[in-house]
Nucleic acid binder design. Structure first.
Length: 95
DNA sequence: CCTGATCTGCGTCAGCACGG
DNA sequence: CCGTGCTGACGCAGATCAGG
């Protein structure tokens, strides 16, 4: 068992549904104190915000990489054109 | 329209890394 | 150790799209 699961004993409530205001003392085992519940709620709240921030950072990072890809593709195109031009010049010289 | 497939964002859990 | 933050993975709901 994973320790706690105080939100929904029914197991059919989808994850991601927040039972924000639930007191936790309604059908909890006696060892689950209000303090335990409070700590858990606090941790969930912090983790929720951490996950949001993590996703924001990840999105930013991906956007950065995509920009870099675009820049490098441009550079590559330019260099290919330059190489072609230089080859042309060289070919005309040797003729 | 309707419907099934795909995308997107969210909350939660698990597990790792790190500092005290 | 233990508490805490970060992040991958999962399941879910709502939005969007393509095909009938």
């Amino acid at each position: 068992m994973s320790g706690y699961q105080i939100c929904t004993p029914t197991s059919s409530l989808p994850q991601g549904v927040v039972m924000a205001g639930s007191p936790g003392s309604l059908h909890s085992p006696p060892h689950v104190t209000d303090e335990t519940t409070r700590k858990r709620q606090l941790r969930l709240m912090k983790n929720r915000e951490a996950a949001r921030e993590c996703r924001r950072k990840k999105k930013e990072y991906v956007k950065c990489l995509e920009n870099r890809v675009a820049v490098l593709e441009n550079q590559n195109r330019t260099l290919i054109e330059e190489l072609k031009a230089l080859k042309d010049i060289y070919c005309h010289k040797v003729e």
